[in-house]
Each structure stands twice: as structure tokens, then as C-alpha cells.
Amino acid sequence: MTSLPGSGLRVALFATCFNDTMWPETPRAVVTVLERLGVSVDFPLEQTCCGQMFTNTGYAREALPLVERFADVFEEYDAVVAPSGSCVGSVRHQHAGVARGCGRPALADRATAAAGKVYELSELLIDVLGVTDVGATFPHRVTYHPTCHSLRMLRVADKPLRLLREVRGIELVDLPEAEECCGFGGTFAMKNSDTSVAMGADKAQHVRETRAEVLVAGDNSCLAHIGGLLTRQRSGTRVMHLAEVLASTERDFAAANELGGPPYAAGARDGREATA
């Protein structure tokens, strides 16, 4: 086992509050992928939320205790991984600022130190583990939406695409106007719902133009927004987190075919993908 790229590495998983509650298949897929690569994964149960929703809506004071909690929970680890570009973006780009703005310079220093060890999934795989082929199989027509925060806050560039290109059986098609925002934007989706939906509708239209079976991204919240529009439009395209594609293996498909169930198993939730 020592030959595995992640052997000897202990990584804490920051599931993020939304994934933990609404999309548990995503953090489960992260565990699957990392363990397959030899990483030992911890899930510190004291974790809750990075505070992004509070910070971005203007509630820095409410975010402050979460910034502190994040540092408390994660600063002891060498590496932390989260399957969300925007939550990692918040930790890396906002935590220290929130602390400083609230008059807590010492916490700001701790937050900066903690943030330096936090990676979005594609960053951990490529930059830390040095792998692009994670042993996945996913025989579908897929298009990838680079979410704004992974693209412009974290600058993950084409890392997710490099991972997807190595997936066996995948047919990867370019998404037109890929780098334009989907319109989710956190509370923007509610406060300016008309504009948000107008942006999302254009994104969904571009997704449909690709005739992909699956839209993949690194943030479930953006996917829920685009996916919500796609299903409302009765489009045949389903949405899926990058981690779940990377977790899929040949065995999953064999099993799925036997059972006639969902085509991937890593994070399957009964029935949830059935209509996709």
C-alpha cells in the first residue's frame, strides 16, 4: 500500500454545512476517492459552517464565532479538504478579514495560518497528492461548469478538468460561456431572484446546448440552482458534484446495471437520481 499517492497522509475533511445536511453523497465521495488513494481521512465532529453566508450577506459579527471555530477545529491538521470552491474561498480569502474587521488581530493570524492548509478537492488531488488519474470510471457525456469562486477566488484554473480528462469512459464536452456566473451567488439568489434566475436560465440553456447527460461542478449550491432550473425545464441533464464523478468506478456501474439502479454508487441516494 505504500505506493499509493496518499499513503501516510492524514487529511481532515471539512464537509461544509450544506453538503453535510443536503448533499451527503458528496463528502462521502470525497472519503471514497481519498481512501482509494491511500489517504487517511478524519472528520472532526466539532465542525459546523465556514460562515460564508453570514460574511457575504454583511453579517460579519455573526460570522466571527465561526471563523474562530474553524481555526479551533482545523488548525492542528496538516491538510484540510473541502468539496466546495466557495467555502474554501471564504476560508482562504475572508476569514482573516472578518477577524480583523471585528478587532481580533490575533485570531486573524490564526485564521491565515489555518487557511493556508485548506484545499479545494481538485487542489488537494493535484497539488498535494500529485495525481490526476484517481482511478474513476464514468461512461457518460459530461460538461463542466467552473464555479466563480473556484475560478476567480481560488484560481483552480483547469485542475478539475485535468482530473475529469483522466476518468475512464467519460465524454467531456465544452460548455459555452463556461466562465460566466450561473447566478446563484448565495443570498443573491433570494434577494435578487429575478436577476439570479435570468442568469441561471442562460447557463441552463448553454448546458442544454451541450447535450450532456451530466453537468459537473465543484459546488453543490451552484449545481442546485442550475439543476433546479434544468428540472423545472424538464431537461434530461442531471447535475453531479465533481467528487462523485471521481468516486465512480467500474464496479459501481456493473452493480448498477445488475440492479437497474442509479448508474453510479459512490454517493447514490435511493431514487434521487432516478428521474435524471
Binding site: A15, N19, D20, T21, M22, W23, P24, E25, P27, R28, F43, L45, A189, M190, K191, S193, V197, G200, A201, A224, H225, G227, G228, L229, T231, R232, R269, R272
Partner: peptide, 17 residues
Amino acid sequence: AWSDARDAPTPPAETFR
């Protein structure tokens, strides 16, 4: 404001935790 134009995801039966 969300669901006027977008379907909303249902929560799963079991959280990750």
C-alpha cells in the same frame, strides 16, 4: 423567492455526519 422558477432539492434521509 427560490422556488418560483427553480425546483428545490429535498433533504436526504441521512446527513453525512
